[in-house]
Computed example of a mutant assay.
Amino acid sequence: MSLAMRPDCKRCGADLPAEAPGAFICSFECTYCAACAEALDDVCMTCGGELVDRPTRARKFHADHPPSAKRQFQG
């Protein structure tokens, strides 16, 4: 089972492409940009879990393992 690779920051809505570095996730895959993770002191605002670097997914794998298109920002 692969990560959902959510496309945006849960806190500010910034785009976070699966193939790009700079995203942070908790164990429930809540996803944040680097600026929001830093502002939250690397603690998920939803569950209180630790935020860690999300790995990237090479574009060549997107067809067989597509990143999520469902945006999570509720702005």
Score class of each variant (00 low, 15 high):
Ala37Met: 02
Gln72Leu: 07
Met45Asp: 10
Thr46Ser: 08
Thr31Ser: 07
Val52Ile: 14
Thr31Ala: 00
Lys70Thr: 14
Cys44His: 12
Met1Thr: 14
Thr46Met: 05
Ala34Phe: 02
Pro55Cys: 09
Cys26Thr: 03
Gly22Val: 06
Gln72Met: 06
Cys44Ala: 13
Cys9Met: 09
Pro55Asn: 08
Ala35Asp: 14
Ala58His: 04
Ile25Glu: 06
Leu3Asp: 09
Lys10Gly: 00
Asp8Arg: 04
Asp42Val: 00
Cys47Ile: 00
Pro66Gly: 04
His62Asn: 11
Cys36Met: 08
Pro55Glu: 12
Pro66Met: 07
Asp8Thr: 09
Gly75Asn: 05
Ala39Val: 01
Lys70Tyr: 01
Glu29Cys: 02
Ala23Asp: 06
Cys30Ala: 11
Cys30Tyr: 10
Pro17Trp: 03
Thr31Arg: 09
Phe28Leu: 14
Thr46Val: 14
Ala39Phe: 08
Ser68Thr: 15
Gln72Ala: 03
Ala39Gly: 12
Ile25Pro: 04
Ile25His: 03
Gln72Ile: 10
Ala63Pro: 02
Ser2Lys: 12
Ala58Val: 13
Pro21His: 04
Ser27Asp: 14
Gly22Trp: 01
Ala35Ile: 05
Leu40Ala: 12
Gln74Lys: 11
Ala14Gly: 03
Met45Ile: 06
Arg59Ile: 14
Ala58Gly: 06
Gly49Ser: 11
